[in-house]
Write a protein that binds this DNA or RNA. Structure first.
Length: 563
RNA sequence: UGGGGUGUCGCCAAGUGGUAAGGCACCGGACUUUGACUCCGUUAUGCGUAGGUUCGAAUCCUGCCACCCCAGCCA
């Protein structure tokens, strides 16, 4: 029974699932899970996996569990659990009542280990960590059996029991699966499945002092939850024989879970490894895990990305087995597309230049109607006060412009968005020759909606009233890295490529007065510039802070650059 | 020199023997009171490489090359 929905792109995982459906491998069930370890923050690479797991099960009418892979209490914390939960919900996915922890299964995992011992498939090893490494051999050299490998079942049972009771020191003994020390696959050379860790666990407290290893806990957790397809990243490909071995040897699962591996996401101009991300935080190069430049879910949220845009991105990048680096331009495309439709337009002048309209009455204030979205009248309109003195963008004025410069220049006319056509008459400079203000005249008939409103001029500028605009701090973000791909580089090379200009703070910006009533988290398109979000952490009613989400496409800048 | 993977346009990625989808980026052009959006159009005689099978191959076979992962009591 295939209920494939053709709206979603196909990928090799869907294909495998559909084969299983046809072969009735799991009946009509499709059940996935997302298994984060609570030892850090989620990033957009995790988002890919989250989207994949939730949308795949949904596509076939199945479910997706959330399960914390919390088998290593020395690395994990409740704080991370809470933030992961928050991030996944924000991304738009719901695990309903299916929130689990690998630690929920510690009792069962222990019982299954006893089964393994009884079958002669596991043994307690007294070798030190160093000795275990030596005995394991190398990539090209087979391993050799531990002298403790052939202990009796009774002795193993006794020792394992005493490990659990805390009779032994950390590192003094482990439980190992008895597989094959000669295997070409190093994972099969008698992997450790339980180690002694006298650490307090965030879920189980002090109940345990032995903890299962991932390779052992994961397949069993999957099987216990009735997971049909366990999706994981490529590096676990080598572990699949081991995954299957545990499910087989434990012997109680009728139709064991199938592990399927796919390539994790890499993004250009940033890094995805927890280590490198942590290095950025700890070196103070960013503001924290939720710094708007970080590829973390928390960072993207604060940056102003929408959950929808991230889901769309996850869908567009596809799923395959080839290692790849996705161009960050695709992510930017996704948020632009989403916000182009959703974000109300507003005007903000980032670097103000004063313009005085000499023939406009000094005390006059006109409330000019401005559409909130020129392509979508349903989003309504607001008014903007127009006055004799306004601000325009510094870069929208040039005394000696290059060709094709359509903006303000002496003697030429430009249109002010939703307002009048004005003509530049003169400029005023300070003693250093810096332009401090520009004098213009306006054409009263050219008011938007007015009699000669249809007159065409080449350039259109955004503006705000100098007397009515409100000051704001605007933060302009750039990529974290100068180099395209630093995902595989070591820490030093990666640090050498850090973009030292990834944040520019504009403290003198002026925004239109309607923005005073906006709230943290509100997103706007500042016309002709980009999409911005009111910062959810630092913005205050008396000190507005906006973050650049992504700039608008800028054909003019591109033209200049290509010259 | 062990084992496991992967190689299709600048970046992703379909394709599973019948004559190279799509998206992003790029480059042209139209439209435009956002140099935005939108809309049109161009862009792989070629699928890591060399042979072979076939009427026909990115798809099958053989050899070679390149890259990634594995030697935690991490996940």
């Amino acid at each position: 029974m295939t209920t494939s929905n053709n709206d979603l792109p196909s990928n090799f995982i869907h294909k495998m699932i559909e084969e299983d459906l046809e072969n009735n491998r799991y009946g009509d069930r499709v059940h996935t899970r997302f298994p984060p370890e609570p030892n850090g923050y989620l990033h957009i690479g995790h988002a890919k996996a989250i989207c994949l797991n939730f949308t795949t099960s949904a596509k076939y009418g199945g479910k997706c569990n959330l399960r914390f892979d919390d088998t290593n209490p020395s690395a994990e914390e409740m704080e991370f659990v809470d933030n992961i939960l928050k991030d996944i919900h924000w991304l738009g996915f719901d695990w309903e009542d299916r929130l689990y922890y690998a630690s929920d299964y510690f009792d069962k995992l222990y019982e299954f280990a006893v089964i393994l011992i009884n079958k002669g498939k596991a043994y307690v090893d007294d070798l030190s960590p160093e000795e275990i490494r030596e005995y394991r051999g190398s990539l090209t050299k087979p391993g050799k059996d531990s002298p403790y490998r052939d202990r009796s079942v009774e002795e193993n049972l006794d020792l394992f029991e005493r490990m659990r009771k805390g009779e032994f020191e950390e590192g003094s003994r482990v439980l190992r699966a008895k597989i094959d020390m000669q295997s070409g696959n190093i994972n099969l050379r008698d992997p450790v499945i339980y180690r002694i860790l006298k650490a307090k666990h965030h879920q189980t407290g002090d109940k345990w002092c032995i903890y299962p290893m991932y390779d052992y806990a994961h397949p069993i957790s999957d099987a216990l939850e009735g997971i049909t397809h366990s999706l994981c990243s490529l590096e676990y490909e080598d572990h699949r024989p081991l995954y299957n071995w545990f499910l087989e040897e434990v012997g109680v699962f009728e139709q064991p879970t199938r592990q399927i591996e796919f390539a994790r996401l890499n993004l250009s101009r940033t890094v995805m490894s927890k280590r490198k991300l942590r290095a950025l935080v700890e070196a103070g190069l960013v503001d924290g895990w939720d710094d708007p430049r970080m590829p973390t879910i928390a960072g993207l949220r604060r940056r102003g990305y929408t959950p929808e845009s991230i889901q769309d991105f996850a869908e567009r990048i596809g799923v395959a087995k080839a290692n790849s680096v996705v161009d960050v331009a695709l992510l930017e495309h996704c948020i632009r597309e989403d916000l182009n439709a959703k974000a109300p337009r507003a005007m903000a002048v980032l670097r103000p230049l004063k313009v005085i309209i000499d023939n406009y009455p000094e005390d006059q204030v006109e409330e000019l109607e401005s559409s909130n979205h020129p392509n979508n009248p349903e989003m309504g309109s607001r008014t903007m006060p127009f006055t004799r003195e306004i601000y325009i963008e510094q870069e929208d004025f040039m005394e000696n412009p290059p060709s094709k410069f359509y903006r303000m220049t002496p003697g030429k006319e430009v249109r002010l968005l939703n307002a009048y056509i004005i003509k530049c008459e003169s400029v005023v400079k300070d003693e250093n020759g810096e332009i401090v203000e520009v004098h213009c005249t306006y054409d009263p008939g050219s008011k938007s909606g007015g009699p000669t409103a249809g007159r065409k001029v080449k350039g259109t500028l955004h503006w705000v009233s100098a007397s009515h605009s409100v000051p704001a701090e605007i933060r302009i973000y750039d990529y974290l890295l100068n180099e395209e791909d630093m995902n595989d580089e070591d820490e030093d090379d990666f640090k050498a490529q850090i973009n030292s200009n990834s944040l520019e703070i504009l403290k003198d910006a002026q925004v239109e007065p309607s923005l005073k009533s906006s709230n943290p988290g509100d997103r706007f398109q500042f016309m002709r510039q980009g999409y911005f979000v009111q910062d959810i952490r630092d913005s205050r009613p008396d000190h507005l802070v906006f973050n650049l989400i992504v700039n608008l496409r800028d054909t003019w800048a591109k033209m200049q650059k290509n010259k």
